[in-house]
C-alpha cells in the first residue's frame, strides 16, 4: 500500500507543483505579514492558505478522472478483490498531502522573519431589539467566541444625579458598575456567547440611555501562537471533503471533476456563516429556504474555516460535537466509497 500511496501523491502533486506550492506559501506570507507590502494579519494568511486544499481537491478530481480513462477501474476490479484497497489508498494519499500542506503552512507561524501582527480586536455592531425603560435585549447574531466583550456607551445627560451608583445587571444577577464617561465592558458568559442573545437592564432606573449606534461587540483577534491551532481546524474542515469526493466518484459514479465541484458546493454550504435572514415570499425566498435547509442538514462547522479579515468572528466557535459530526460524515463517505457495488464472485 505505501507504494500505491506514494504513486497517487506523485500523480496529484508532481514535482513542479511543489515549487508552485512553496512559492505560493512564500507569497502568502509576504502578502499577509510584511509590514509595508502586506495586510499584517493572520486572518489574511489563513485565507490564502485555504486556497491550497481547494486546488488539491480539484486536482484530485482531475486525477481520478484521468485514472478512469487509463483503465484503473478495470484493474481494481480484477486485482483488488475486496474493493477497499484502492479507495483507502486514495484517501490516505490525499490525507498525507493535506497534512504536508498544513504542516508546511504552519512554519510561518513558528518561524517568521516579519514582526508578528500586534494584538488587536475586531468590533462588530450589535442589534438591539428592545431599548425602553433602561432595559435592552441584544442580538449578537449566531454564537460568538467566548472571549467576547460587549461595549456599551451610556448617555448620562438626562440623569439627575450622575454621582449616584448605577449598576448594569443581567437576569441572572451578574452586575457591573456603570461610570459616567467610561465604556461599560460586559464580558460575555459562556452561555451568552453560545446563545448569541442576552438581556441587560440598569439598576436603579435613573434615565441612563444606551447610545445604540455606538454599541459594539469586541472580539480579540487570535495571535500568531494560535495560528497552528487554526490551521489544524482548517485541516479538519477539508479532510472529510476528500472522503466525500471519493464517495461521489466511486459510489455515485460521477466524473472526478463533477465530484470535485459537488464537494466544493457542499464545502461552501458548510462554511457559510449562519445569519438571521429576513426572507420574503416568492420563488427566490423559496430557493433561499431550500439552501438554508440543506445547510441545516450539515453540522455547523463554519468556525473551522475561520479566515480572512474578520476571522475572529468565527474562530473557535464550532463545538466539539459539530466537529465530530463533520468527521463522522467524512468517515461515512469513506465507508460508502469502499462499499462500491461489485459483481458477486464465487
Amino acid at each position: 500500500m505505501p507504494y500505491l500511496i506514494w504513486a497517487l501523491m506523485r500523480d496529484c502533486m508532481p514535482r513542479r507543483w511543489w515549487f508552485g506550492f512553496f512559492a505560493g506559501l512564500l507569497l502568502a506570507t509576504v502578502l499577509s505579514f510584511d509590514t509595508n507590502l502586506g495586510a499584517h494579519s493572520l486572518g489574511s494568511y489563513l485565507a490564502y492558505v485555504s486556497v491550497f486544499p481547494l486546488v488539491l481537491l480539484f486536482r484530485c478530481g482531475w486525477v481520478l478522472q484521468q485514472r478512469t480513462s487509463q483503465g484503473w477501474p478495470h484493474q481494481e476490479k480484477l486485482r483488488d478483490s475486496r474493493g477497499y484497497k484502492a479507495p483507502l489508498v486514495e484517501f490516505f494519499g490525499l490525507s498525507t498531502l493535506l497534512l504536508i500542506i498544513y504542516v508546511c503552512a504552519s512554519i510561518p507561524c513558528w518561524w517568521n522573519p516579519y514582526p508578528s501582527p500586534p494584538a488587536s480586536a475586531g468590533y462588530y455592531p450589535v442589534t438591539i431589539h428592545f431599548g425602553a425603560n433602561d432595559y435592552w435585549l441584544f442580538d449578537l447574531h449566531s454564537p460568538v467566541p467566548a472571549s467576547s466583550t460587549l461595549l456599551l456607551t451610556l448617555d448620562w445627560s438626562q440623569v439627575q444625579n450622575p454621582e449616584q451608583d448605577v449598576w448594569i445587571q443581567d437576569p441572572n444577577g451578574r452586575k457591573l458598575q456603570a461610570i459616567p464617561g467610561e465604556l461599560l465592558r460586559w464580558p460575555l458568559s459562556p452561555a451568552e456567547a453560545k446563545e448569541g442573545k442576552m438581556a441587560l437592564h440598569s439598576l436603579p432606573k435613573v434615565g441612563v440611555e444606551l447610545r445604540r449606534p455606538l454599541t459594539r461587540l469586541e472580539i480579540p483577534r487570535p495571535g500568531m501562537q494560535q495560528g497552528p491551532h487554526l490551521l489544524l481546524l482548517q485541516f479538519l474542515f477539508f479532510w472529510p471533503l476528500f472522503a466525500m469526493l471519493l464517495a461521489w466518484h466511486r459510489r455515485g459514479k460521477l466524473s472526478g471533476t463533477l465530484s470535485a465541484w459537488t464537494c466544493f458546493a457542499l464545502g461552501s454550504l458548510a462554511a457559510m456563516p449562519m445569519q438571521a435572514t429576513d426572507l420574503d415570499s416568492g420563488p427566490l425566498a423559496l430557493l433561499a429556504r431550500a439552501v438554508l435547509l440543506l445547510k441545516l442538514a450539515l453540522p455547523p462547522v463554519e468556525g473551522l474555516l475561520a479566515a480572512g479579515a474578520r476571522m475572529e468572528r468565527l474562530a473557535f466557535t464550532s463545538a466539539a460535537t459539530s466537529i465530530s459530526g463533520w468527521l463522522v460524515l467524512g468517515a461515512l463517505s469513506l465507508w460508502l466509497a469502499c462499499k462500491e457495488k461489485r459483481p458477486v464472485q464465487p
Binding site: 507504494y3 500505491l4 480513462s69 483503465g71 484493474q75 480484477l78
Partner: peptide, 26 residues
C-alpha cells in the same frame, strides 16, 4: 485479463505501472 483495446497511464514507466498493479493485488 488482456483487453482488446488496452488503456494505459501513458505518463508512467512500464516497470512503475506493473509495480503499481502488483501492489494493487498484492
Amino acid at each position: 485479463y488482456v483487453p482488446q483495446e488496452p488503456l494505459f497511464p501513458l505518463h508512467l514507466h512500464c516497470q512503475d505501472y506493473l509495480t503499481q498493479l502488483f501492489h494493487l493485488g498484492c
